[in-house]
């Protein structure tokens, strides 16, 4: 399975150029993290892939099908193969956990069956299995608005996974969660993706989480890809380019030492690195709420 994005542009009606021609290929079953400051276009990029936001120009090919050329029905069918996980979970709050998970199967049932909550038994069985996998066994009849943030994001993951997608798009999965839960959620995501051999594209502004969990990192700055490589390649210069657009950093010293720490021992220096990134990004990690665009 391959996601092949070429020359993706998005100019909003306000005249903001969110994406200025992005090329990106995701294939195999690797986890790709897209990092960048807020406003870099990370969310816009992900939303353009399944056309929740209409791209202005460029192509998005999923296994050779150009999604940007599809009509409504074709797009609906294509969306079934793309699992999406949202920053604010975007679960239907007044429905039960099971109903939310089964939302992932809506593309395969008629509106009447969906209305009667009469899903095929294999879908229900699959939903149960996925719920067990994400650690929400026996929670199926709870209403989502009774759950904690971490539990909600697990439901969000289950909803995307039950689609049996060809790719998972993940938009800032941790920005509404505390650091510990963030880590668990990221681990769960990458594990599930590996088990099911599905590639994952994750937007994330916390560099340490990206470094810890992703196979590959793409740095976005002001609508352009300014870095692409493995976590090990993400050095001081690269971070500069991503977060400051390559301008000479004002406070060279602390950033340098912290970035070295990333390269030498990313996991052990979580908090240091996070602080470093925060100062570059200008906001605190566990209170930040807004995504790329």
């Amino acid at each position: 399975m391959t996601l092949d994005v070429t020359g993706l542009r998005k100019t909003y009606e306000s005249g903001d150029e969110a994406l200025k021609g992005v090329d990106l290929t995701v294939d195999g079953s690797e986890t790709t993290a897209m990092i960048g400051p807020s406003g870099a276009g990370k969310s816009t990029f992900i939303r353009c892939v399944n056309r929740l936001t209409e791209p202005t120009a460029g192509t998005v090919e999923l296994d050779g099908t150009d999604l940007t050329a599809l009509d409504d029905d074709g797009l609906r069918a294509a969306r079934r193969d793309i699992g999406m996980i949202f920053q604010e979970y975007n679960l239907v709050e007044r429905l039960t956990v099971m109903e939310n998970v089964l939302t992932g199967r809506l593309g395969y049932v008629s509106a009447w069956r969906a209305f009667r909550r009469n899903f095929p038994p294999e879908d229900v069985e699959r939903a149960y299995e996925v719920l067990e996998r994400v650690g929400l066994a026996d929670m199926e009849n709870k209403r989502v608005d009774e759950l904690s943030g971490g539990q909600r994001q697990r439901v969000g993951i289950a909803r995307a996974v039950v689609q049996q997608p060809k790719i998972l798009l993940v938009d800032e999965p941790t920005s509404s969660l505390d650091p510990e839960t963030s880590n668990t959620v990221m681990r769960l995501l990458t594990e599930i993706a590996a088990e099911r051999e599905v590639p994952v594209l994750i937007n994330i502004h916390e560099v340490d989480l990206a470094v810890d969990h992703a196979d590959r990192i793409v740095g976005l700055h002001d609508g352009e890809v300014v870095f692409e490589g493995s976590a090990d390649d993400l050095g001081d210069d690269a971070l500069d380019r991503v977060y400051r657009g390559g301008d000479p950093p004002e406070s060279r010293e602390p950033t340098a030492s912290e970035s070295e720490a990333v390269i030498e021992d990313g996991a052990a220096n979580d908090s240091v690195v996070r602080d470093g990134v925060v100062s570059a990004d200008g906001r605190a990690p566990d209170r930040s709420t807004s995504g790329g665009s």
Binding site: T96, M98, E99, R117, F119, P121, E122, V124, E125, A127, Y128, E129, E140, N141
Partner: peptide, 12 residues
């Protein structure tokens, strides 16, 4: 375990 199919109905 995978052979046994569980059913689900919405709680009323």
């Amino acid at each position: 375990m995978a052979t046994e199919r569980r059913s689900w109905r919405r709680p009323t």
